[in-house]
Structures are given as structure tokens and as C-alpha cells.
Design a protein around this nucleic acid. Structure first.
Lengths: 343, 343
DNA sequence: TCGTAAAATTTACGCGCGTAAATATTTGGA
DNA sequence: TCCAAATATTTACGCGCGTAAATTTTACGA
């Protein structure tokens, strides 16, 4: 590679023998130039290291190639995982993902959206905080920038929503728990941030009734995203308190369940399916760590490959079509039962 | 807020009654204009919603306000946590953090650096993959862009390195383990990605010798970042294989330990300090989940607040001074023992 | 009140690239 | 071989802002 520094497209035009407008076309879409010129350009790119100045590019393009990706909390491996999957899909589509985490705070969520606004993204994929989200302002944003929601829905906001079918997944695990032992109580937070938690609670009640059992809700206090801690603290209270109507607890999500498993262990309560076990605990989400809890956590996995794929697909269609979809799209994907040792 | 859309600084100059060059000064540094004009500008900003086009700004500025932040794997909550801390510090300093994850792959690491290059960052904070990093190319990058390494060192690359004092922290936990029970064997990977793993191994050997014990290394196969899985698989082999010389295992990091705890549980081996326990397991790093394992994982926490603070401090100094530091800076921070139930 | 330093305004240019229009060249099939 | 369609080149302008130089206005102390 020659080391003569090329500072702009004009310079690269000189050394490559291709006119600047043609180069501009090439960089916008390599397929838009004739094969022979494309090869000439690529040969020159091998020889001279040049890349268009992205600031100049984006200043002039009607539409940037940026796609914003906002998740509620990157510290949660669940979101880290889905973010990674989505990033990969965005890159594969020739766009540039910009990953931001709201760190559990609605102000940060808005600040993320505002940062994105000044980056003029072609579109945004948003997994909102949920109940805590400042819905009005998120809605305003979504009217200006094509936005697709995933994981958690904000009613009517954005062009589409893709998430999990909580009815199906909760049915699945309630069925399993009832079939294999005592019907479960449902352990969740009193005022959960995540709208999925509400849906799961309702789904639990419906599933129990369908099976002819009395639903039993345990709703604990606690704010924030420290779910393991909440599961631990409140789980300890629960397990050392008055006798439950059953030996089976279905937690609203895996992180609560992980905390509760820890509480059970601390209190000498054996969890699992064996003869000596006196408690069964199940979760929801198939958190990356659920395979390694003691015992392994029985849970239901979300089909987040499908959620990711569909979200990106839709956002790309949205970008292509320039104008919004006809009506707000919504799709829920089914979960799969992950049977492990805890229930 | 009036809704007359202002599309550029000239328009905002018109409605605010402040000349464009003065506005430009203000946006670069609000303190650089007289208080009275600053107030006029800010009053106008309240009224008319205008923000400079960041692409135009960055095209013309000698130096952008971007600071790149590259971590090896965001799926690991440890890195997600430190990334979050560093992001906060960067924002507080008036810069714009760009977070990228290498997803455990050296190609991705380079591709991240290349993405950053075209963003013309003022500086980059890099937690390299370690052994897997393509050192030559990372070095080339670091010569072009002011770079500070943290967490894992690449000898001689970048302007500075900040990490943990593995000698101190391993000493701390080996001391503790020997003091409170049988001396530990060291469980790690044969060819670890992370250079810290090598340092910890050496530190373990030195600590054991210092205390007059025979070091005993267990080095297992395994590639990639699936540490829990490796800890689980290899832990199972270890625990069901020939008798160990001791009942105490010190793992190279918490994620291995978490996997091993799971393997112990599966095999009916009781871990902990109690009378019925036959195995002690300790880790290193104080992973966010280590509090919730069963039993809680005894480990040593890294002072990553200090590492983050010092890294950002240095990168800001580097940006200020324009030219590099006098000599490569290095500092190691001490760990703290976290005693829990597992050892 | 005046004088001077500090700050704001006016004017003007350049950054690197997108893009449009007119023109020239190449391509591939009849 | 020729011709129309496809593609490339030439020329030129604009994007929104940084920044420099010359000039005018403002602030503030003696």
C-alpha cells in the first residue's frame, strides 16, 4: 500500500483515474457503477488507503446510514445479547448501528433519543423502559424519526412493535408446572417497570383459571433494576414467612428467580425436583445465567432471534418505503420451555 | 416554544439577534462569550429549538468531541458495568462516548477501531481482547489516535495502561484461603485470552511459595468467552476425577467459578464453609452475579471505579496536551476481598 | 469623562462531499 | 458496422459550520 496520504475524494480521484462524481456514486452504492470501473476503484482502494469523510458524507446525504438502537439496560445480559444480535443484522444490511443504553432511567432514555436526533438516524430501534418511559416525549420523537419498538410495548407509539407472546409462554410454563407438581403462585413486583410483567401476571391468572386452580399473586415492593437483589430480599421474607399455599413459585422473570434461589439456599431450603426438595422455582426469559444456577433454572426462553430479525426487517422496510407503514404492525413470538432442575 | 423551524445557525442568528460567529463560539464553549450574550443565547434556545448540525460541526473542527470506548465483550456484565461508569465520566467531561464491543473477536476489535478512525475521535479508551488482539494493527491505530488501555495490557501499546494489581489481589485471596483452610489449587485455562489470567497464575505460584506451600495448577482446554460453560464442563471432570490434593479451588475469574459451582451442585458436592461442605471455591473479579450464587462466591473485587476514573482523567489530559505523555503511564489498582459463603 | 481592553459584528473563505445538468464515452446487440 | 442505451466525465453549486481578519461596539476603571 502506497503511503501517499489522500485527504479527500478529489485526491483519490486523481490517483485512481476515476471522476469524483463516479466515486461518490460508488461509495453510496458500489453496484451502481459498471463492473469494470468498480474493479478499478477497488484496485485503487487496495493501493491507497482512502475512506470518505463520514461527516461530510452525512452532512449532504438526505438520509444517513445510521440506525439507532436503544436498550433499557446494557448491564442486563439479556439486553446485551439481543443488542448484539440486532447490531449484527444492521451491519449485514449495510447500515451503521449506534447502541445506547438507558441505564434504567427515563431521563437517560430521552437523552439517548435526543443524541440520536442530532445524528439524524435513518431509523431507530427502541426497547423502551416501559412504565417509566416518558411516553409523550418518546411519542414526539417517534413521529419525527421512524421508530420500531421491541421487547416492551408503548401503546400506539412507533411504527411497529415486536415482542414475546406472554400469554403463550406463561401458559406453557403454568401448564408444565401444574402437570408436574403443585400449581404455582406468581411472584412479581407490585409496580413493575416492564409492561411484560403485567401481561405475565394476567396470563398467569387466566392460565390458572383455565386449569381450574385458584391464582395466587405475591406482589413485592422494590424499585429499579436490581432484580436479583429484590428477588433475594423479598424471597427471603417469603420463604421464612407464613406457609405458602403451594411448593411452587413462578417468578415474573429469571433475575428475580435467581435472587430467590439464592435466598432459598441461604435459608437452607432445598429447591428442585428431587425427593428432598421442598420448593420449586421457575422463571421467565432464559437469562444467560439460568443454566448455571444451582439448580439450573426452569424457565421459558424468548425467541429473541425472531424478535431481532423481524424488528430489523421492519426497520429496513420502513427506511426503504420512506413513508410509514399502513397501520401499526405488531407481532408476538412464542417462547419455548427450558426444563432444568429447579422445577 | 415557537415552532418556526430553524434549520441552521444563520437562522438562529436571525431570531436570536446574535451574530453567527459569536454563536459558533458559544456552542464550542459557552464560557467563551460574555455573560450577557450567553444569557441572550440561552433565552433564545429556550424559545426556538435549534441544535448545531453535528456533521457540519465535526467536519470543520480540528478535533471532534468524540471519545471511543471499546470493550472486549458487552455480554459480560463486568464490562457492561465498567463501560457504563466510563461513559458517565466522559459525558460529565463534556465529551461524547461511543461504545463498541468487540464481541470476543480480534477482527471485530480491529473493525471497531477502524469505525472509530473514520469518526475521528479525540481519543480512544480500549480494553483489548488480550492475547487474541492483533497487536501490530492495534499498535498502528494507537500511533494515529491517542489511546489509553485499561483492564488488559498490551505491552508498549497506547499512551497508558490502567488495570488491577493481580499480584496484590491474588496474594490477598491466597492468604485468606490458606489462613482459613487448606491451601488452594489454581484453576484456569491453558491458553487464556486475557493477559490478567497469566499474571494471576504467576501471582498464585509466588504467593503459595511465599507461604511455604506447593503450588498446584489445573489448566483446562477451552476457547472463547463461554467461561461459565468451560468452568462447568471442566469443573465436572475435575470434581468427578481423581482426588485433588486439597479441598480448595481458586478460579482465575468469577465466571469460571460460577460454572464450577454449578458443576459441583450437579454432582452433589456441597460447597462452602460449613461442616458438611467438602469443597471451597473462590473466584476473582466480583462479578455482579457472584453475590447470588449458591453459596455466594468468595472473591476479590477490582477497584474499577478507580480504574475508570484514572483512565478518563488520563485521556482528558492527553486530549488537552495535544501531544503524548512523557513516557507510557501505568498504574495498577488494588483489589478488595469479598468474603461470602463459598470459601 | 475619557481611554483602552475585551467582546461582538461584518465579511469572507474553506472544509469534503452530494448532486444536478450537460456532454462525452463506452457498451452490446442488430 | 452502426446506433441507442447505459455509463462516465465535466462543470458547478450548495450543505452548515469553523475560523480568520478587519472593524465596530461595549464594558469598566482611573
Amino acid at each position: 500500500m502506497s503511503d501517499s496520504k489522500i485527504k479527500n475524494m478529489e485526491g483519490f480521484s486523481a490517483v485512481s483515474g476515476i471522476s469524483r462524481p463516479t466515486l461518490s456514486k460508488y461509495f453510496n452504492d458500489p453496484a451502481s457503477v459498471r463492473k469494470s470501473t468498480r474493479e478499478k476503484i477497488e484496485a485503487a482502494l487496495e493501493k491507497y488507503d482512502y475512506r470518505p469523510n463520514i461527516y461530510a458524507v452525512n452532512q449532504n446525504r438526505r438520509q444517513t446510514k445510521n440506525i439507532g438502537l436503544v436498550v433499557p439496560n446494557l448491564t442486563d445480559p439479556f439486553f446485551a445479547g439481543i443488542a448484539r444480535t440486532i447490531e449484527g443484522l444492521i451491519v449485514k444490511a449495510g447500515f451503521n448501528p449506534l447502541l445506547l443504553s438507558s441505564h434504567g432511567g427515563p431521563e437517560q432514555e430521552l437523552s439517548n433519543l435526543n443524541s440520536l436526533r442530532s445524528i439524524k438516524p435513518a431509523a431507530v430501534l427502541l426497547a423502551p423502559l416501559g412504565r417509566a418511559s416518558l411516553a409523550d416525549q418518546v411519542a414526539t420523537f417517534a413521529e419525527e424519526v421512524p421508530t420500531v419498538l421491541f421487547d416492551a410495548n408503548l401503546e400506539g407509539i412507533g411504527e411497529a412493535f415486536f415482542g414475546s407472546d406472554n400469554d403463550q409462554s406463561i401458559n406453557l410454563i403454568v401448564d408444565y408446572l401444574c402437570r408436574s407438581g403443585e400449581p404455582p403462585v406468581f411472584f412479581g413486583m407490585k409496580t413493575p417497570i416492564n409492561p411484560n410483567a403485567y401481561k405475565r401476571q394476567s396470563a398467569y391468572i387466566a392460565a390458572m383459571k383455565r386449569l381450574g386452580h385458584e391464582p395466587h399473586l405475591i406482589q413485592v415492593d422494590g424499585e429499579g433494576w436490581n432484580f436479583e437483589e429484590i428477588g433475594f430480599q423479598e424471597g427471603a421474607k417469603l420463604l421464612t414467612g407464613p406457609q405458602l399455599p403451594t411448593n411452587t413459585i413462578l417468578c415474573s422473570n429469571d433475575r428475580l428467580a435467581i435472587g430467590m434461589l439464592s435466598a432459598a439456599y441461604e435459608n437452607g431450603i432445598k429447591v428442585g425436583l428431587g425427593a428432598q426438595a421442598t420448593l420449586r422455582i421457575a422463571g421467565h426469559d432464559d437469562h444467560p445465567f439460568s443454566r448455571f444456577t444451582c439448580p439450573g433454572l426452569t424457565t421459558v426462553s424468548q425467541d429473541y432471534d425472531a424478535i431481532a430479525a423481524r424488528s430489523v426487517e421492519t426497520i429496513l422496510a420502513l427506511i426503504d418505503s420512506k413513508r410509514g407503514l399502513k397501520g401499526r404492525e405488531e407481532a408476538l413470538f412464542e417462547g419455548r420451555l427450558e426444563m432444568r432442575g429447579s422445577a
